[in-house]
Design a protein around this nucleic acid. Structure first.
Lengths: 344, 344
DNA sequence: GTATCCTGTGAGAGCGCTCTCACATCCGAA
DNA sequence: TTCGGATGTGAGAGCGCTCTCACAGGATAC
C-alpha cells in the first residue's frame, strides 16, 4: 500500500473569504450564525465553505473567545473501584447524550494520586476547560469549593461536601434506602442488617440514614452490630456477611447498599446454607444487571443514573453558555424493583 | 454566600518574562524543556512561573504547533450495548493510565447516528485531535481507512476491517475460544452448542472460528443448528438458549461468547431444569465479575482488557509524538479461568 | 432637504504562543 | 592575534480566529 498523501493544509477563513469574494469578518459571521448577513452573501459563503470543506480551527477560536467548547468529567477514584459496576458507563452515557446536542466535547480526567490531583487543579484553573463535572467525591474534598471560588462552572454528581454552595444532582438515597427497608419490614422481617459503603461518602451515609429511618418509624430498635460498613465491592461484602452470620445468627434480612455487595452477601449466605428469601430476605441498591441475573433475582432500588448524567450535563451547559452562576440542586427519585430475593 | 471573585486574568508568557527580567522566547524555552538556557536564567524563570502560578495556554500553543495534545476515543456503538459489561470501563482505564504519562488528554466520542458520524468525520479531519482510538467497529466500517488516508494517526481496538492497513491491538479471540471448547471436549462433552455475538463483528466471527477449530481437531462434526448467532446481551441469549434446548435436547455443553450471554443461558437452563455442569457444561468469554459471581461460578476466558487499552494508547502515543506511521499489530493472549460451570 | 437610524460589510487589532533569525559573548584553535 | 564555532538571548513574525469600530448606503423621520 502506498504512503497516504499528507492532508493538504486545512482551509482557513481567509481562504473561504477569497473564494466567496468577501472579507474574513463576513465569513466569520456566517459561520457563527449568520446574523447581519444578507441572504445572498450568506449563500455564497456557504457554498464556498462546502467547496473547500472548511472546518473552523478550534484552537484559534479558543484563543480569542477564551472558550474551549469542552468540559471535563473528573473521577477522583482509584479506577479499579469503578469496574464490575456499570454506574460509570451509564453516567457517561447520559452526560454524552446532552453534551453532544450542545457541541461540547467531553474530556475525561481520572486523577489517581495526590500528584495527579495537583496537576489537575492547575489544569482546570488554566482555562483549558469551560466547566467541570465532578463525581465520586470522598469526604470533604476541597476541589468543588476551589473550582467554584475560581469562577469555574462546576456541577457535582452526588451530594457535595457540606458548606460548599455548588450545583449538584443527586439521587434520593435516603428515600431509596428507606423504601427498601420498609419493604423488608412489611414482609415481616425484624432483625434487619445492612451492608454500607464507605461512610466518608455521602451516598453511603445517606443510605444508612434511610435504613435507620425505616427502622425507627417501625419502632424497631437500632442495633449497631447489624450495621456493617466498608467498601462497595463484592469480596469484602462476602467476608463481612460471613462474620455477621456468625455473630448474629438471628438475622432475617439484609439491606445491601450496592448490587455487588448483595452478590457477595448472597454467596456467603449460600455457603452458610441460609436460603434466600426464606431464611434471610434481601434488598440491594442500584438495580444493575447483577440484580436481575442473581439467583434468586434481587429486589433492588433502581437509580436513574443516565438521567443523573443528563441533568448534570444540562446544568453545566447552562452555566457555561450563560453567565448564570446560581447554584441549583436536583434530587432524582428512586424506584424499588421487587423480585424474588425479598420474599415478594 | 457572596459572589465568588472572578479569577484574575491568567498570567501569560509575557508576564512571566517581565517578572523574570527576560524575553518571552527564553521563558518559552524553559517551559519546553530548558534547552539552551543557562542554569541561572532557568532558575529565575522557574521561580517567576511559580510565583505567578503560570500555566501555558493550550489554545495558543495548539494554534502554532498544530498539535492539540489530545486524542479521541471513538465508540460508534448504541451506548446501551456497552452497559452491564465492564469492557468499556476497563479499556478506558488502561488507555487513561498511559495517556496520563504522556500528558495527552482523552476526548470521548460516541456517535449515535449517521448524522453524528458525519459530524465526527469532519471533526476528526479538522485537526482538533492529534490521533484517534477506534473500538467496537462493526462490519466494513470505512472510518479507519478514511482517517488513515488523511494522515491522522489511528489505532483500532479489535480486528479492523479487511484490507485496511492500520495499527491495531486485538485479543486472540480464536485461540481463546478454541481453548474454551477444547476444555469442554476434554471433559467428555460432544454435543457442544455456541452462542455467538453479531457475526458482522470480527470479535464474534473469531470466537466462532475458534469454536469450530476445536471441534474439527477433535473430529467432532459441525452442526450448524448448534451455532446460535445474535447480540452479546443477556435477554436474547436467554431466549436463544430456550429455543436451543427445545430443538436439541441432547446438548451437553454451551460455549457462550460473552459473560452476559452466559448469564442468560444459565437462567434458561435453570428454568428448563437442566443442572450445570452435570447436564450441560458451560464456558463463557470475558471473565468479568458476572462470571465469578454466577451460580455455579462460570469458567470463562479472561481477556487482558486493561492491557489492550494500554497497548493501544502506547501505539498511538508513538505515532503522535514521532512521525512514525508504520502499521503495527499487537495480539494479546487470553487465559482460561476454570470454575465450577464446566465440571472441570 | 437634512438629520437620524438601521443594515451589511470591511479593515485591523490582538488573543498567547512558538520558532526562525540575528546578534552578542565567550571559548579554543590556528 | 584573529577567526570559526559554540552558546545564550531577544526581536519579531505569524498561527486562524473574533470582535470592535468605521463607514457606505438605504430607509425613515422631521
Amino acid at each position: 500500500m502506498s504512503e497516504p498523501a499528507f492532508p493538504r493544509r486545512a482551509s482557513t477563513l481567509e481562504g473561504v473569504a477569497t473564494e466567496a469574494g468577501v472579507s474574513r469578518a463576513t465569513v466569520s459571521r456566517v459561520v457563527n450564525g449568520g446574523i447581519r448577513v444578507s441572504p445572498v452573501t450568506q449563500r455564497a459563503v456557504e457554498r464556498a465553505i462546502q467547496r473547500l470543506g472548511y472546518t473552523p480551527n478550534r484552537a484559534a477560536r479558543a484563543l480569542v473567545t477564551r472558550r474551549t467548547d469542552s468540559v471535563g468529567l473528573v473521577i477522583p477514584e482509584p479506577t479499579s473501584h469503578i469496574f464490575g459496576d456499570p454506574f460509570f458507563s451509564r453516567l457517561v452515557r447520559g452526560i454524552a447524550e446532552i453534551l453532544a446536542t450542545g457541541d461540547l466535547q467531553l474530556v475525561l480526567l481520572t486523577p489517581q494520586s495526590k500528584a495527579d490531583e495537583e496537576r489537575l487543579a492547575r489544569y482546570l484553573t488554566g482555562g483549558h476547560l469551560d466547566g467541570v463535572l465532578l463525581v465520586s467525591l470522598h469526604g470533604q474534598d476541597a476541589l468543588p469549593g476551589f473550582l467554584q471560588s475560581r469562577g469555574i462552572p462546576v456541577v457535582v454528581g452526588g451530594r457535595p461536601p457540606d458548606g460548599v454552595e455548588v450545583s449538584f444532582v443527586d439521587v434520593d438515597n435516603v428515600d431509596g434506602a428507606r423504601s427498601a427497608v420498609r419493604h423488608l419490614i412489611r414482609g415481616g422481617r425484624r432483625r434487619i442488617a445492612t451492608l454500607t459503603g464507605p461512610l466518608d461518602m455521602a451516598v453511603a451515609a445517606d443510605r444508612l440514614e434511610g435504613y435507620r429511618a425505616a427502622l425507627a418509624e417501625a419502632g424497631i430498635p437500632l442495633d449497631h452490630g447489624l450495621e456493617l460498613s466498608g467498601e462497595f465491592d463484592q469480596e469484602r461484602a462476602h467476608d463481612r456477611t460471613r462474620e455477621l452470620l456468625r455473630r448474629h445468627p438471628d438475622v432475617d434480612a439484609i439491606f445491601a447498599a450496592s448490587d455487588p455487595m448483595a452478590a457477595g452477601a448472597l454467596q456467603a449466605l449460600r455457603r452458610a446454607d441460609r436460603s434466600v428469601p426464606t431464611d434471610v430476605a434481601m434488598v440491594s441498591f442500584d438495580d444493575s444487571g447483577l440484580a436481575s441475573s442473581a439467583e434468586p433475582p434481587m429486589t433492588s432500588v433502581r437509580q436513574p443514573i443516565e438521567e443523573m448524567g443528563r441533568e448534570m450535563a444540562r446544568l453545566l451547559t447552562r452555566m457555561v453558555t450563560s453567565r448564570d452562576r446560581v447554584a441549583r440542586r436536583v434530587i432524582l427519585a428512586t424506584e424499588l424493583v421487587v423480585r424474588g430475593s425479598s420474599g415478594g
